[in-house]
Amino acid sequence: MGVVLTEKAAAEVKRIVDDQKLEEGTVLRVGVTGGGCSGFSYALGFDTSYDETVDSKFDFHGVSVVVDKKSALYLDGTTVDFYDGIEKRGFTFENPNAVKSCGCGSSFQA
């Protein structure tokens, strides 16, 4: 199943790529790192390459998303969205593998 990027999140990624004038072929890398108040933290960043032997690549609404296979174990079925409200603004993660999340929404326990 992999990671899903919503249309709203894809539009924000495209805006950032354009604003920062990132090079052609830039991909959104989604991953998991150790740490955070619940054990794991989500990682988002831009990359210019990926390795088919260790990464999975998905395309959503004109944005290429890359997830390394180790992170994919924790992110399978996760939806990345973008929230733009009065009280907060940023990317959100809806992860069916998370058994516990913290209040900040950027870390989880699997």
Score class of each variant (00 low, 15 high):
D81F: 00
K88W: 02
D55P: 12
S56V: 12
I86G: 01
N97Q: 13
K8I: 13
S106Y: 14
D18K: 15
F60V: 06
V4K: 13
G36I: 10
T26W: 01
T6L: 02
R89E: 07
L44K: 07
S101V: 15
S71N: 03
D55C: 12
V65G: 09
C37R: 08
F46E: 07
E23P: 13
S38M: 12
G34T: 12
K14V: 07
G39F: 08
V65L: 09
G77Y: 09
H61G: 05
T26N: 06
S38H: 02
V32Q: 15
Q109K: 14
D19L: 05
Y83F: 04
L5A: 06
G90P: 01
G85N: 01
F82D: 03
E87R: 10
S107T: 14
D19W: 03
P96R: 08
D68R: 05
V13L: 12
L44H: 03
V67Y: 01
E23F: 09
R15E: 10
G45C: 05
E7F: 00
K21D: 14
Y83W: 06
E23W: 08
D19Q: 09
D51L: 06
G90I: 05
S106P: 03
S101Y: 05
F82K: 01
Y74N: 01
D55T: 11
F46R: 02
F91N: 00
V80H: 06
G39N: 04
F40L: 04
K8E: 14
D55H: 15
V99P: 01
V17H: 06
F91L: 03
V17L: 05
T79P: 00
K70V: 08
H61Y: 14
E23G: 11
D81A: 09
N95T: 01
G39T: 07
V99Y: 08
D81T: 00
T33P: 04
D59E: 15
C104L: 08
L22P: 00
E12F: 14
T33A: 13
V30A: 05
Y83V: 08
D81I: 02
F46A: 09
K88A: 12
C37D: 11
L5W: 05
V66E: 06
G103W: 00
R15F: 09
S49M: 01
S56E: 15
F46Y: 08
V32A: 15
G39A: 07
V66H: 02
S107P: 11
K14Q: 13
S64D: 13
K69V: 07
R89H: 02
V27L: 13
V27Y: 10
E7V: 00
G90L: 03
E52A: 10
V80G: 03
E94I: 11
S56W: 13
T6Y: 06
E7H: 00
A11P: 02
E94M: 03
G85V: 04
S41F: 03
D51M: 04
G45H: 06
G62M: 12
D18M: 14
K100A: 15
F93Y: 11
V32F: 15
M1Q: 01
T79Y: 00
P96T: 08
N95K: 00
V63T: 12
T79S: 05
R29W: 14
V63K: 12
E87Q: 07
S106I: 12
R89C: 00
V66R: 02
T6H: 06
V4W: 06
